[in-house]
């Protein structure tokens, strides 16, 4: 079983990555609570992989891209979706989930992100293969 501190550390990294903001206690607690549910329990192998990733927050974007593009059913994609859902329903982050105004800059940002995501995904795929 992952310890509570490990789970909080994991969620802190997701929050920082997805929102660029600090974590709220509320979101951290919810993530810990979600991990008590049978549908979110990890098996030993998944725990081992997660423990290898946690000390290196820099890996999160790579793994996100790899799972998003190549491995939609990967357990890490499931955890990031859980984190995303918790963040979305936390009043502290609600503004980040409202529609964005149409700006060329925004589209350029999206296009840039999409392009780099492919490269990150390839590296992320290698990382996942290494830690498996």
């Amino acid at each position: 079983m992952m310890s509570e501190e490990e789970l909080r550390q994991e969620m802190r990294q997701y929050i920082r990555y997805i929102t660029g903001r600090k974590s709220t206690e509320h979101a951290l607690q919810l993530f810990v609570r979600a991990n008590e549910q049978p549908s979110f329990l990890l098996n030993q192998e998944e725990e081992n992989q997660l423990r290898k990733i946690l000390p290196h927050p820099i890996l999160i974007p790579l793994i996100d891209c790899a799972t998003g593009l190549f491995l939609p059913n990967h357990f890490l994609r499931k955890r990031m979706t859980l984190a995303f859902a918790i963040i979305e329903t936390d009043t502290a982050y609600v503004d980040l989930f409202m529609p964005r105004p149409f700006r060329i800059y925004g589209f350029a940002q999206l296009a840039f992100r999409g392009t780099t995501a492919v490269f990150k995904a390839i590296i992320g795929r290698v990382v996942l293969w290494k830690i498996a």
Partner: peptide, 26 residues
């Protein structure tokens, strides 16, 4: 139904999907 329901259907990383869905929502 919020955006997290759509995240699962999008073949993108969470970060890009988040931005994309915000644009697309309306």
């Amino acid at each position: 139904m919020l955006l997290f329901h759509l995240l699962k259907e999008s073949p993108l990383d969470v970060k890009t999907a988040h931005l994309f869905l915000q644009f697309m929502m309306p």
